[in-house]
Design a protein around this nucleic acid. Structure first.
Lengths: 110, 110
DNA sequence: CACGATAGATAGATTGGCTACATGTAGGTG
DNA sequence: CACCTACATGTAGCCAATCTATCTATCGTG
């Protein structure tokens, strides 16, 4: 859907929904759906690799549990993850300000 | 720099700087630098393929000329290009609203 | 029992921006 | 003159991240 547009921003979004509380993968998916107002319907083939990437990068930690017979892997932010989130927020501001500025109509030539 | 982040948004930015007047490739590069406040320093290996892509897609038209002994390929928006630009602006609004909403801190759990 | 929701995961394709390379002109400076 | 920088256009190949499609498995409901 917004496949290409999302590039490079997904990690920030995932970190953001994990900020308030630890969540397992499926719950991250749902949280993103909710907080995006339904606009973000992340396929599992995008989400799970992304979570593992964040894990490998040390931005989240994971822990296995079993709830109602179903295995869950719950992720929570590390302190590095919190720092990364803050940095991602700044980067997003800069990026969106930049795009906004270029996209804004006007600046007619002489 | 913002390599990954740019994905899927570059075409919109190029269309935007071509909105007010036709420009040749190198001038597009400079226009993007200026209107992004210097944040966007597009390598030629990104720009020229992008322009050809837009050309093939029928969103811009190009014409060769020679100015001061240097060959120039000047691009201008087609009507399809103008429509595409409008659509890209809407998509950007939606996208940035979505990201903004997810990234915004708060929505603390019970 | 079948099916949808819950829960996790991987393989492979796609894609688009980047690096590095390749070519050539014009103009200024040592 | 030699050299460098700015101007000007382009391609080949790499890479990273997302998507599609597929797989496994449990639980509740009709």
């Amino acid at each position: 859907m917004m496949s290409e547009a999302l590039r490079g921003h997904l990690d920030a979004l995932i970190l953001a929904v994990l900020e308030t509380e630890p969540l397992h993968g499926y719950a991250v998916m749902e949280a993103l759906q909710v907080s995006s107002g339904g606009a973000l319907d992340l396929p599992t083939g995008s989400l799970y690799p992304a979570l593992r990437r964040l894990d490998r990068a040390g931005l989240v930690e994971s822990e296995w549990s079993t709830v109602g017979g179903r295995r869950r892997r719950t992720y929570q932010l590390t302190s590095a993850g919190r720092r990364a989130l803050a940095s991602e927020r700044t980067k997003w501001r800069d990026f969106s300000t930049m795009v906004e500025g270029v996209l804004r109509p006007g600046s007619a030539p002489a």
